[in-house]
Design a binder for these strands. Structure first.
Lengths: 199, 199
DNA sequence: GTTGTAGGCCAACAAGTGTTGACTCCCTTG
DNA sequence: CAAGGGAGTCAACACTTGTTGGCCTACAAC
């Protein structure tokens, strides 16, 4: 897969600097895969380095320590859609579809979930994302702004629970459901949590 | 807390055997607490032994190895209520209430969730529980028996997601919700997943 | 061509892990 | 009382982990 191979006919300025950035990237992608597959503790620096075809000490050189590597590997922007611009009754469906698409194309989310469950720093990171990226969405569609955090939490519980059973624990029936079926079932739930009057 | 203290005036047969069973129990409770708090990898046998006030080697003597200890520590019976005997439209509320009560009084569930996310054996254990204890509930109330597994998975996703955000990741709004509020929000969701016609 | 500098690798360290075997102590049984 | 066996302790093992410092190599500037 190595594009622009070792021929290194690349332009004059910065032949080595180029290479360093390529290995930094290799480390990050390897780290994301390992964190997603194994969680924080079992994703060893040695294994990540092996995947990236470099020496373990390079990880330390570039990212200081394991926590630094994790922090660099799992920064994520959920790119939440602008729900205020949607018809009010399509918010639930749009969010579920966006969530499924993002999760399946981006292993960082699985990594974050796996790490957040066992590592305090990971949990904090998830709280940040919830606070900065999810609550604002609720704020945009909730009838009562004061209820936005609670309603966002309910929606997050439903979506993260689905990710948990489908992508992490892999309950067979949860894996077998198609994305369309999931959207059909979950959309009304999200819609209600975010826009319906309090029960 | 040690009932019938070291006076050992207990009846003749089996003074030592009694003590052994007491330490077995101490190991199990310490293990449950540690697994719940730290997950599988970070819950070290040494820490568990320290909590139980015994030597690490005793853990090996009684449970063989760490996996054996885990298997012994997290066997659980959810004691699911007999939903067939309930009015059909109260199933959702009953399940949510039962779930919240069970989770808050039993740290084993948090342990299982934490371990299941990073450890294959833990995930398998959760799949077992889902298959043997949750699917039957869905079978008892689903209109179409063939859909029971999928509907059970949807319900499990919602409930586990709530446990995840409230008891493990501790999103502040999820922690702040009262059990009554949670029941009011989630009961209709469970009700729909289990009993409503397919969307 | 010489030199400085950054990229990269090797070997090693200290700490902590699960696990094992030999040892002591005490209670129960004859 | 003597003997047996199980409960419990101690010290050590082999191994893996994150992390460090010294060394080599190749490119860029002078």
């Amino acid at each position: 897969m190595r594009a622009s191979d070792s021929g290194s006919t690349d332009s004059g300025s910065g032949g080595t600097r180029r290479r360093s950035e390529r290995t930094r990237g290799a480390i990050l992608t390897a780290a994301r895969i390992r964190f997603a597959a194994d969680g924080y503790e079992r994703a060893t620096i040695r294994a990540i380095a092996r995947d990236a075809d470099i020496d373990p000490s390079m990880v330390m050189r570039y990212y200081g320590n394991k926590e630094g590597l994790f922090a660099a590997a799992v920064s994520i922007d959920l790119k939440m859609p602008d729900v205020a611009a949607l018809p009010r009754d399509e918010v639930g469906r749009a969010l579920v579809a966006h969530f499924l698409g993002t999760w399946e194309e981006n292993e960082v989310l699985t990594a974050l979930l796996r790490v957040g469950v066992t590592n305090p720093a990971g949990a904090e990171r998830m709280q940040e994302i919830f606070r900065n990226q999810l609550i604002p969405v609720a704020h945009a569609v909730c009838p009562d702004p004061e209820q936005a955090p609670a309603r966002a939490a309910l929606g997050a519980a439903q979506l993260l629970g689905l990710a948990l059973t489908r992508y992490v624990l892999r309950f067979p029936p949860a894996v077998a459901l198609s994305r369309e079926e999931i959207a059909a079932w979950l959309a009304p739930t999200l819609q209600r949590y975010l826009t319906a009057p309090s029960p």
